[in-house]
């Protein structure tokens, strides 16, 4: 695959949008890391370094298509066109957040965009994706589901059951495995006896592919192929994206379990830099535009922080609301 070439179907505007989104994820995560002390939750997982996966994969689907996410969900949220203000305010625990401050970082979701939610339970997204895909299939809607999960999650029983069912029922689900080499502190090679987790696809009877997860075009192309297959009723694909998370497990993790050499080595393969160079070579953008985009991105992030700080804390009187669609008497203290 020559991913040096931009996909023919991408207009200049689309190509630039891809860049903007990746940069937005990067700057967003940088900012919440800086604000970790103010945000206070120790369970905020930055996506830094993995931007190409969410953005590349989501570029291959339409607005009506669905995604399920993970505990590390900000990138997926932004890639599926979620509003950055609402995302930031949620992480800040404010009423103006996308889940009204009830969910926080690990549960950001935007159902208006068919982003079906980050998830605190490692491996819980893919089983849900089955049902979403089944609903689409039963109603002949032609919609597909991308379900993101990590190398760590791949060792959950839930993944085995999901891939088997998706394969057997030919469900329009695409399994996007973000292999960033670690599940929290645990190296993938100490948690599985094979290096390429996509090998598993064979055992289920679906297609398994490996892509460079730091190459947004490669991720896009593989996902596009899988999506086309799924829409035609050809069933599921497992796409293993090899990548690396730049930051600790969370914004507050000391990250002593990975060597500096390893981190530096991966930083040389920055997904944003790689793509930016292509855009420059393809004469899609120039230095002036780059600067403009960078400034605009930073400004938007800054605005989202302002928005969050201005947003009120949730009203404690509403804490028992929203449990049921048809409310029942909860009682309380």
């Amino acid at each position: 695959m020559n991913s040096d070439e931009l996909p023919k179907e991408w207009s200049s505007e689309e190509s630039i949008n891809i860049y903007k989104k990746m940069l937005m994820i990067r700057e967003f995560e940088t900012r919440i890391t800086k604000d970790a002390g103010k945000i206070k939750s120790p369970l905020v997982h930055p996506y830094t370094g993995e931007e190409a996966i969410a953005v590349g994969a989501c570029a291959a689907i339409n607005e009506e298509d669905y995604i399920t996410s993970t505990h590390r969900g900000h990138g997926h949220f932004i890639a599926k066109d979620g509003d950055v203000n609402l995302l930031m305010a949620e992480i800040y625990g404010k009423e103006g957040g996308i889940c009204k401050g009830r969910g926080g970082s690990m549960h950001v979701a935007d159902f208006s965009k068919n982003m079906l939610g980050a998830n605190g339970i490692v491996g819980a997204g893919p089983p849900l994706a089955l049902g979403v895909a089944l609903a689409s299939k039963m109603r002949n809607e032609g919609k597909v589901v991308l379900t993101f999960f990590g190398d760590g999650a791949s060792n959950q029983g839930m993944l085995h059951e999901s891939m088997n069912l998706a394969a057997t029922w030919k469900l329009p689900v695409i399994f996007i495995l973000e292999n960033n080499k670690y599940g929290w502190s645990t190296p993938a090679q100490t948690a599985t006896a094979v290096e390429d987790l996509s090998l598993r696809a064979q055992g289920y009877g679906i297609k398994g592919v490996i892509v460079d997860g730091n190459d947004v075009i490669e991720v896009y192309k593989s996902t596009k192929e899988a999506v086309d297959l799924a829409r035609k009723g050809g069933g599921s694909t497992l796409i293993e994206c090899k990548t690396f998370r730049w930051q600790g497990q969370t914004t507050t993790d000391a990250d002593k379990y990975r060597s500096n050499e390893e981190k530096e080595e991966w930083k040389k393969r920055c997904p944003i830099e790689i793509y930016k160079k292509r855009l420059i070579r393809g004469e899609i953008i120039d230095q002036t535009m780059i600067k403009e985009i960078e400034e605009k991105t930073l400004e938007q992030v800054e605005l989202s922080v302002k928005f969050s700080k201005k947003s009120k804390k949730p009203d404690t009187g509403t804490v028992l609301d929203d449990i049921y669609k048809n409310p029942i008497d909860i009682g309380g203290n």
Partner: peptide, 11 residues
Amino acid sequence: PDVPIPYAPNL
């Protein structure tokens, strides 16, 4: 009370 635990610290 019978409610999932909310994220916001004041809640």
